[in-house]
């Protein structure tokens, strides 16, 4: 569908589906803390080699800015394979070599348990029952948010075929496994006696572990792998956010007749502005747990779920209800985070006498969905203009090629399939 319609951003789809461009701002906003996390990762790695922190931050920012300003989207894509090989190598060496040095995983888990016993309830080696809802909602919220980000969707939408999307989706568990191994390195760091740094707190655990346990040259290689591993997604994110702005805001509202050159120049400037915004998050956001930056991004981007994911299935929602739901979700999630002083993304939700710790993204999404579902019939009843759905059922079902017409798409479909679509279209789109 994206190839047929020429969609590059999720906001492109929502503009056609619901005749609304409100989504673009959320994508740009939500990308900033995520980029901040990547810049911070590069900063911590450079600082671990003894470089003063201010200089580390400046270097991290300059590397990212120069990289994206000169090369666009293609260089990060080219570098991705090398980056993955470097990171896989470092992680595999770390989970095999360091545990052998420390006497095996048995010793490591023993050391972690001893720390949990000694901490008197502030640290747990196994998830306590009270944290189950927080963990479950964090997993659910993060999983749903992942494919709503402009950078992941831009990657998917710009692929050549469904086959590529399927193949990449099949390979994704390999990355999840890698992340599991990296999480295990947190336990290894405890067993190796790594203490939180006074400046970077426990965010420095892995670089400090590498610096302590690896020889100097391999530690240097590991930090380079971390830096490249952070640079590539940060570059893709800032470019995706910039293209979201130029395609869905600048060209649509400010300069509809702009040339491709003007669009590219605007994208470069916006990409730089997004990175400056990310820098502001590093300077002003409490970074006791840097992962909160990503979790904040998740809370914001998850609020686009009704328009993007549910929009794929139905156009029943009223576009004004979607916008109000989006704002309601953003406001709820942000207020929950503010009430926690930006130190945690888990909010203790009180339901009568029951208090359930939940990842703020999930209750915010519930508020968003409730607003969408309740306000849609109301707006329809009041006759508020709903815009026009420019997508067709054939867009969703056929195997289109760029430039093909709707009649060609319909002719590709089996008679049964066509009946199903016609029937479903009648239910979902009674106005057409």
């Amino acid at each position: 569908m994206a190839r047929h319609r020429g969609y590059v951003t999720p906001a492109d789809f929502v503009r056609d589906r619901f005749d609304s461009s409100a989504l673009a701002i959320t994508g740009i906003l939500a990308t900033m803390p995520y980029i901040a996390l990547q810049i911070y990762g590069i900063e911590v790695s450079i600082a671990q080699m003894g470089v003063p922190i201010e200089i580390s931050l400046i270097i991290a920012f300059a590397i990212l800015a120069a990289y994206t300003y000169t090369s666009g989207l293609r260089a990060p894509a080219m570098i991705a394979v090398v980056k993955d090989m470097c990171i896989w190598l470092v992680v595999l060496v770390a989970v095999i070599y360091i545990p052998i040095k420390l006497g095996g995983f048995g010793n490591i888990f023993k050391a972690v348990h001893a720390k949990a016993v000694a901490s008197g309830g502030t640290f747990h080696d196994v998830l306590p029952a009270a944290e189950y809802p927080a963990y479950a909602t964090l997993a659910l919220g993060s999983a749903l948010a992942l494919f709503l980000y402009p950078h992941t969707l831009t990657g998917i939408l710009s692929t050549n075929s469904r086959k590529v999307v399927r193949r990449n989706a099949a390979l994704l568990p390999a990355y999840t496994f890698l992340i599991g191994l990296i999480c295990l390195l947190g336990y290894v760091a405890i067993a190796a006696g790594i203490d939180p740094s006074p400046i970077y707190k426990s965010n420095v655990a892995l670089p400090a572990l590498f610096a302590k346990e690896f020889s100097a040259w391999f530690a240097g290689f590991s930090f380079a792998a971390i830096a490249i591993g952070a640079l590539t997604p940060a570059a893709i994110m800032s470019i995706a956010a910039a293209s979201l702005f130029t395609r869905n805001i600048y060209r649509e509202y400010f300069h509809p007749t702009c040339t491709e050159r003007e669009e590219a120049n605007t994208a470069r400037t916006v990409s730089l502005a997004v990175k400056v915004g990310a820098l502001a998050f590093i300077l002003f956001f409490p970074l006791t747990l840097a992962i909160n930056l990503q979790l904040l991004s998740n809370i914001w981007i998850l609020q686009t779920l009704p328009a993007v994911f549910l929009g794929l299935y139905t156009n029943w929602f009223h576009r004004r209800a979607l916008v109000i739901g989006l704002l309601g979700g953003l406001l709820t999630g942000t207020l929950m985070i503010i009430s926690r002083g930006f130190e945690s993304s888990v909010f203790p939700l009180s339901l009568g006498s029951l208090t359930i710790p939940m990842y703020a993204a999930v209750p915010a999404l519930v508020v968003n969905l409730l607003l969408c579902v309740c306000l849609t019939p109301l707006f329809k009843l009041l006759g508020v203009s709903n815009g026009r759905d420019n997508t067709t059922a054939a867009d969703f079902e056929a195997h289109p090629v760029a430039g093909s017409s709707e009649s060609l798409l319909l002719s590709q479909m089996t008679p049964n399939g066509r009946d199903d679509i016609t029937e479903r279209e009648g239910v979902l789109n009674p106005t057409r």
């Binding site: 790695s45 450079i46 080699m49 003894g50 470089v51 990289y67 090369s71 293609r74 260089a75 990060p76 080219m78 570098i79 090398v82 980056k83 470097c86 610096a211 100097a216 040259w217 391999f218 530690a219 240097g220 290689f221 930090f223 380079a224 792998a225 830096a227 490249i228």
Partner: peptide, 30 residues
């Protein structure tokens, strides 16, 4: 204090990978 051995390897690896990306970028047909 800066660990020059670590920093040296960091700079070499980082620069090599970046150059590789730009080289591939320059060679790509579009």
């Amino acid at each position: 204090m800066v660990n020059w051995e670590m920093l040296g390897v960091f700079i070499v690896v980082f620069t090599a990978v970046t150059i590789l990306a730009f080289w591939a970028f320059m060679l790509s047909p579009t």
